[in-house]
């Protein structure tokens, strides 16, 4: 009898909280869909640039479903490689073994190119002992593991995830414990509250970013080819974006649990589309979603610095976009506080 009463009460509580119900049903579907798309996506089609006299090889590769682009000079090919337009350059001589130069930052693409080359070469002169191709890397090396590739993305993810949640819950508590109202009874400006949060969390997240980056590079030994300063700049901007987004969305949560419900909605999709998996295998419409995702820019910038060792010109766009997100969310936060005090 009592069990029944409790069951009924719980069902009634669920009926009052339609959002939790929706989350329980729809969020798993969303996550499953994403995973399905990512893991069952089309096979990766590598883009291979070819230089030198090798029409036979080009035809062979095309037969293996590779995208083949022929370059006149090796300089042109190298530029395309640097611009990530192609995954590898194959320069074939007439009699010697072809040289393969890989872009190298994504193990999936590396593997795909190598497999393709192997079957293409063995198809070219069947029976003959194929001369071993000479392999070089633009970034990284042959022994770069998947975690090296994922490292920068994961650093960005963890910083984003925890700052989002902690800042969101902190701001939520401020509201539910009445301290926000007490703050707003003082002559403090709304913008001062938001900027106070940005400043306070900013200092805290610098320390967090330092620790995570140091640990990843020194302890876990993740590849670090670029400047530590740029890594810090990117992680700081990413965490400030997470902070302002977290405090903004906390306005739409009534308790800590509802804040956690944002994880599958806001965080997980960003993780999937931020470069953890090769985006070329995703449907175009899904890959296009990443332009509104702060974590995508953070992960791109971090990969550029940490794996590719690139400098300001490569990450400038990511930095500006993240700055833009920060500013946008900050302004929205200040406006959202109008709900509690008009002035």
């Amino acid at each position: 009898m009592r069990t029944w009463a409790i069951m009924l009460r719980i069902l009634r509580q669920f009926r009052r909280d339609k959002r939790t119900v929706a989350l329980m049903f729809i969020a798993p579907l969303l996550v499953l869909t994403l995973m399905n798309l990512v893991f069952n996506g089309k096979d990766y089609v590598p883009r291979i640039g070819i230089t030198g006299n090798s029409t036979a090889l080009a035809a062979m590769l095309e037969k293996q479903d590779a995208k083949v682009i022929v370059y006149d000079s090796s300089d042109q090919a190298e530029k395309a490689l640097q611009g990530q337009e192609i995954d590898a350059v194959v320069s074939a001589g007439n009699h010697k073994a072809p040289a393969i130069r890989l872009e190298g930052s994504d193990p999936t693409a590396n593997r795909s190119v190598m497999e393709l080359m192997q079957s293409a070469l063995s198809g070219q002169n069947p029976g003959a002992d194929a001369a071993k191709p000479e392999i070089t890397y633009l970034h990284g090396s042959g022994d770069m593991s998947t975690i090296d590739h994922l490292g920068p993305v994961l650093i960005g993810f963890f910083i984003f995830f925890f700052v989002f949640l902690i800042a969101g819950v902190a701001f939520l508590r401020e509201r539910t414990t009445g301290t926000l109202e007490r703050l707003l009874a003082s002559p403090v400006r709304r913008s001062e509250i938001v900027l106070g949060y940005v400043g306070g969390f900013g200092l805290f997240t610098i320390a967090q970013a330092l620790l995570i980056t140091w640990y990843s590079i020194k302890v876990l030994g993740i590849v670090m080819a670029g400047s530590f300063g740029y890594v810090l700049l990117l992680t700081l901007l990413l965490s400030l974006t997470a902070l302002t987004l977290g405090t903004l969305l906390s306005a739409y949560a009534n308790n800590e649990l509802q804040m956690i419900q944002f994880i599958p909605l806001i965080i997980v999709p960003q993780l999937f589309l931020s470069g953890l998996f090769n985006l070329d295998t995703l449907p175009d419409w899904l890959a296009a979603c990443r332009v509104v995702m702060p974590m995508y820019y953070g992960a791109q910038g971090l990969s550029d610095v940490m794996i590719r060792g690139q400098g300001w010109s490569a990450i400038a766009q990511s930095v500006y976009v993240l700055l833009g997100f920060c500013l946008l969310f900050t302004v929205l936060n200040i406006l959202a506080l109008r709900k509690h005090r008009k002035i």
Binding site: T177, G178, E181, R182, A185, S186, P187, K342, I343
Partner: peptide
């Protein structure tokens, strides 16, 4: 009211203890 500059003229004590525990 409401006017930001007037808020300093008031000492406010809310019903809930708005304190940082």
């Amino acid at each position: 009211l409401p006017k930001l500059s007037m808020l300093k003229e008031i000492g406010y004590m809310a019903q809930a203890d708005a304190l940082y525990n």
